[in-house]
Every structure is written in structure tokens, then in C-alpha cells.
């Protein structure tokens, strides 16, 4: 079931289109990665879904009674409140019962790893702690939909790992839409990919769909030297590309398969350094898609 449907959503500032004719849907319980370079319109899109910005045209349809948690890229806190005071207030404002709010806030802060900073003023928080607190205020009321703007970009590798694991553990009962430009993370937690550039969606689909369209699987054979590679390339029927000591054979429906390649190599008694199956990483796919549009 789709809990959010976005149709031709557009936000215009003067002549500039910050978001242009975006259409996509979020299925319940899935994670969607919104990927794009800086200035692509990711924050604008998330802000419209969070009802901070009203769209110039188009519409967002949400499931009835959908509760939302939102984490901005640079969350700002009242520096004179403690982490617990702030999270408790956030919970209450989002509709958590007064009696339960403190307990729920405490548990959430412990969950994001701020259990020892409950009574510390947020003004004294480091960047990483703020990011965690930002996550805590977004999830403290157990929303059905989580909107996260670059939730991990500002963290160090260890923190990034921890927050990714937290997010993954939330995925069971939460629908997540998050923006990122770190594609390794996107690859790890995504049911749907949305590529954005200059305010437009330039590619969308599941990871495997996008892979099928753009991954260009190839078989790479590494020879001792360039001459050997050229010689082999000329001696076979498959289209190939030679780069330094390697040749690359694009894998298509018509082949070649790995087995065919190995048979040919065996029959020619050709000595090679290695044979491997290569597929483009999400990052390469993204760069290709962005460059192509």
C-alpha cells in the first residue's frame, strides 16, 4: 500500500524551479533513497513533504492520520534546553500523552546513544551529538513516516555505521525517505531509488531495476601486457574494449557468458592474470545517469 503519493510536485522560486514535476510514491514499510548532488532540490522536496513549504503546483496525498518525523540536515536546538527537556517537549507536541512523554523521550535518547547526556544542555552538544538528538526528536513519537535530510553525512565513519544500523532497525515499522549523497549507504538501505538533478527526477525505481538499466555488466580479462590484450580482442567475435592490459566484454543477452569466455581462453591456451565479472557500483551508475541527462 502506498502511504504517500506525490504527483507533479513543483516548487518555483521566481524563475528557478527548485523542484519540477516530481511524481513518485512511498510504499508502506519501505526505505527510499533520494540521491542527488548539492542543489538538486532534495531539501526542497523533503520540506514540502514535511509541510514546511507549500508547493507551487502538484499535490501530495498522504494516508489518513499519517504521523511524520522530520530530521533537517542541520538540526538546530534551543541551546538552553537539555536533551531530555527538548525531546520530551517534541514528543508532547507530536501528540504523545503527557504521562508517557518523559519515559518515551528517555528511551529514545538511550536508543540513539545519548543516554549519558540526558541532562546536558544542547548548546554544549557536538555536531555528532546534535545529529543523534535530531534523530531522537524525529522518532520519539514513533511516526509512521520518517523524512531524513542527509541523516549521516555529518558523521564520522563509526557514527555513520551506528546510525545506519539504528535506521535499519526502525525500518520494520516505519516508512523512510532519506536524502543522501553517500551512495554506499544508499546501496545498503534502499527499496526504491530516486535520482534528482536540477530539481527533476532523472531516474527512479528499485535498486535492481536501476541496476538492470544502467549497470552494464562486463567481463574483464587481464593479460600480461597490452599486445596480448589486443591480439585476443582481434581474435574473437564479441565486441570488446581494450584498456591497458585488459579487455572488457560487455555482457548482453546474446552473451558472452563467463563459461564461454573461459572455454575460449582454455582452447587458446592463453595465459591470463585474471578474469572477473564486473558490475557498476551505484556511484558509477549515478554519475552516468547524471552525466547523461
Amino acid at each position: 500500500m502506498n502511504i504517500v503519493e506525490v504527483e507533479r510536485l513543483t516548487k518555483r522560486y521566481g524563475q528557478e524551479n527548485a523542484a519540477e514535476e516530481l511524481s513518485f510514491a512511498l510504499e508502506e514499510g519501505t526505505a527510499t533513497a533520494l540521491i542527488g548532488p548539492n542543489g538538486a532540490g532534495k531539501t526542497t522536496t523533503l520540506s514540502m513533504l514535511a509541510d514546511l513549504l507549500s508547493p507551487t503546483s502538484g499535490k501530495v496525498t498522504m494516508a489518513k492520520g499519517l504521523t511524520i518525523g522530520f530530521l533537517p540536515q542541520y538540526p538546530q536546538f534551543f541551546p538552553w534546553l537539555t536533551a531530555l527537556e527538548f525531546t520530551e517537549m517534541a514528543a508532547k507536541l507530536s501528540g504523545v500523552e503527557t504521562k508517557k512523554a518523559r519515559l518515551q523521550a528517555t528511551r529514545t535518547l538511550e536508543f540513539v546513544g545519548l543516554g549519558t547526556a540526558l541532562t546536558k544542555k544542547t548548546g554544549a552538544f557536538s555536531g555528532g551529538m546534535k545529529q543523534r538528538l535530531g534523530l531522537a526528536q524525529a522518532i520519539v513519537h514513533q511516526p509512521k513516516l520518517l523524512l531524513l535530510d542527509e541523516p549521516i553525512s555529518a558523521l564520522d565513519p563509526t557514527g555513520r555505521r551506528e546510525i545506519m544500523d539504528l535506521l535499519k532497525s526502525l525500518q520494520q515499522d516505519t516508512t523512510i525517505l532519506y536524502s543522501t549523497h553517500i551512495l554506499n549507504d544508499a546501496e545498503e538501505m534502499t527499496d526504491q531509488l530516486l535520482f534528482m538533478k536540477d530539481g527533476r527526477l532523472i531516474e527512479q525505481g528499485s535498486l535492481s531495476e536501476v541496476r538492470d538499466r544502467h549497470a552494464n555488466p562486463r567481463i574483464r580479462i587481464r593479460f600480461q601486457n597490452y599486445a596480448q590484450a589486443v591480439e585476443f580482442a582481434e581474435g574473437q567475435a564479441w565486441g570488446s574494449e581494450v584498456k591497458e592490459n585488459s579487455i572488457f566484454l560487455p555482457v548482453q543477452k546474446s552473451g558472452p557468458t563467463m563459461q564461454q569466455v573461459l572455454q575460449v581462453l582454455a582452447s587458446k591456451k592463453q595465459d591470463v592474470l585474471g578474469v572477473e565479472f564486473q558490475t557498476a557500483s551505484l556511484e558509477e551508475i549515478f554519475l552516468k545517469v547524471v552525466a547523461g541527462k
Binding site: F70, P72, Y74, P75, Q76, F77, L93, S94, G134
Partner: peptide, 12 residues
């Protein structure tokens, strides 16, 4: 300062 953002995203 942006501190209002985390209030405004709630059903305030």
C-alpha cells in the same frame, strides 16, 4: 536560527 523548524514540523 532554525530552532523553530523542529517545532513547525509538528502539528503545531
Amino acid at each position: 536560527s532554525g530552532t523553530a523548524t523542529l517545532l513547525y514540523v509538528r502539528p503545531l
